[in-house]
Design a protein around this nucleic acid. Structure first.
Lengths: 220, 220
DNA sequence: CGACTCCTTGACAGCGTTCAACAGTAGTGG
DNA sequence: CCACTACTGTTGAACGCTGTCAAGGAGTCG
């Protein structure tokens, strides 16, 4: 990681507000694939992504992996940890994050009284909400429904600007949806053949949604 | 629901401490199968279970169901809601719960400053932790691993006292694990045949764990 | 251009579902 | 207390969705 210094800026979302509580943030750049924080390590920091993409996941002993969430620019993660991290976080592509000690937030009396606590509660609640919908997806949706839901979810993210550029590969998508690479690939082909989306310039990670209505129906 | 009046009592767990903040709780009894709170309704209350069992779940439009969690005596749920409930909660068996308005907790200044906020954060964090492990289970474990994990999870609950008496039926277990009734039943039979557990007196909901080590190995 | 990784696609196998029959359990009323 | 009924759980057989394995194509980077 390369150390830098950050300054809060940009639009005021709920997560950005946290950065205005007079808390010092340090900025880092993580290379593609590098680990930001590891499962079962003491959790010291919370992170906000400036640029890039991060995946958080859990592993089974034999290597099976479940990605809990993808974090894109603006997202905050690590707030919800207890004493130790419950999952691993690493950079999918080159990523700039800024971080701050968690105890600064939780032990600082002025923070507790301020709206910072509301923001933290809001962030954690959002996480929980996402986790609960994702359980429904993992437990009860078909592969086609899962992939349609994934595409629509990514479409709602700030990345979207006409063309959707996915930072993650098929392996990551599969581990997020509880599928295999092959099934993800097949489902995307089906969606393409049905006219719900198209790929750009033969690059499989650049997608244009052609029929959000059809996708929403397929999501179930 | 039948109205009653409650008084805090019993051992002091993290969730019990919340009941000692001078907050008024009302007590209710819910009959088997009755809905306690519905998805998308405004969320007004948080609940603690005194006796019985509650399931919280989400539904797809065609009736497919995913149970997020089972709540047993002592458990608190509903703290984590935002403006509206994100899931439905109903009683699996006859259940006594006590409830209190959520805004009393969140808007009361004395509560905010006190340890009540720590307890709330702790409860929500526990929920999130459970949701994340459950995603790993739903997305990446086999049917046998899922059922073994379920049995071990229930074994850790206060219900356990030599014999484990499951309040929920096979349908609920299936919808919790992302399986069907048949698969759950088959997996339990396999565990029984392998000597990992036994049923009591032909009652399929009373289980004795014979080999927790073997179950733990099968879990993953 | 060459080597590597990533993605797609096909053939096949297998796990879990579906459907159905049966058995065991519980609930109800005579 | 028993008979009747409805519900719940078990088990078998066949199907199908998704996984597995492999080959080949496309993209990327040196």
């Amino acid at each position: 990681m390369i150390v830098g210094v950050s300054q809060s800026s940009g639009k005021m979302s709920r997560s950005d507000e946290l950065t205005r509580e007079g808390v010092p943030w340090n900025e880092f750049t993580d290379r593609r694939g590098s680990e930001i924080s590891g499962e079962a390590e003491p959790s010291q920091y919370m992170y906000q992504i400036i640029e890039g993409a991060v995946r958080t996941y859990k592993l089974l002993s034999d290597g099976r992996r479940q990605i809990n969430a993808f974090h894109l620019p603006g997202d905050v993660f690590g707030v919800e940890s207890g004493e130790v991290n419950r999952f691993t976080a690493d950079a999918i592509i080159e990523t700039r994050v800024r971080l701050t000690g968690r105890q600064i937030i939780f032990e600082n009396a002025s923070c507790r009284k301020s709206s910072a606590m509301d923001n933290i509660l809001h962030l954690i609640t959002k996480n929980l909400e996402h986790a609960e919908s994702h359980m429904l997806l993992l437990g009860r949706k078909t592969s086609l429904e899962k992939v349609a839901a994934f595409v629509l979810e990514m479409d709602k993210r700030p990345t979207a600007a006409g063309v959707m550029i996915l930072p993650m590969g098929r392996r990551d998508i599969a581990d997020y949806l509880g599928l295999t690479i092959g099934t993800v690939s097949r489902a995307l082909s089906i969606l393409k053949n049905r006219g719900a989306l198209t790929f750009i310039r033969q690059a499989q990670r650049e997608i244009v949604l052609r029929d959000r209505r059809k996708l929403a129906e397929l999501e179930s």
